[in-house]
């Protein structure tokens, strides 16, 4: 899903409404942009029910001191540890019952820490693995931070591209 920076909060709310409420899914939220605690705070303000949202936080550790252990949060030491992100998602896929949405927020922040080759490989394996497990995968891409390489990468693994501004 392509979003503009200014639409970030609206996109988050829209996503949670569409998938968690309407489709009755649990969410695995991979965050490499903002620490999970900050997202939790925002979601609380937006009055979004949090009991079915599980975070894979790969940014707090490298921000030194923001990785506070809390319920529903698994930490990955660095966004460069892509295999560990896959492992944490796999763990949650096994631990949580019912259908799931896996939200990757965002491909642009992962691209800051990883080269295109390894990131493409990661996406390819992650998305196909989740597809086989019948999970929905939603990849956020911020328009202002995107590039041709990122667009090509997303084109390879995504079934559909949603432009949030258009669909709003």
């Amino acid at each position: 899903m392509v979003i503009k920076v200014d639409d970030y909060l609206d996109a988050m709310r829209g996503t949670m409404d569409a998938f968690l409420l309407e489709k009755d899914l649990s969410a695995i939220y991979i965050t490499s942009t903002i620490p999970s605690q900050s997202i939790k705070n925002v979601l609380t303000i937006l009055e979004i029910e949090m009991s079915r949202i599980y975070f894979v936080d790969c940014i707090s550790h490298i921000m030194m001191g923001t990785a506070v252990r809390s319920e529903h949060v698994s930490f990955v030491e660095s966004p460069t540890m892509l295999e560990n992100i896959m492992l944490k998602v796999e763990y949650l896929m096994r631990s949580i019952e019912g259908k799931k949405l896996v939200l990757l927020d965002s491909i642009n922040s992962l691209a800051i820490h990883n080269n295109t080759k390894i990131l493409s490989e990661f996406l390819h394996i992650l998305v196909n693995n989740l597809r086989a497990k019948e999970a929905y995968t939603l990849i956020l891409s911020v328009e202002e931070q995107s590039s041709e390489e990122i667009s090509n990468m997303l084109g390879l693994v995504c079934d559909e591209s949603l432009n949030f501004t258009e669909t709003k």
Partner: peptide, 13 residues
């Protein structure tokens, strides 16, 4: 706690 989990080592790096 659900057991040993394995994923392929990414080679791009």
């Amino acid at each position: 706690s659900v057991g040993v989990l394995l994923v392929p080592l990414l080679k791009g790096g």
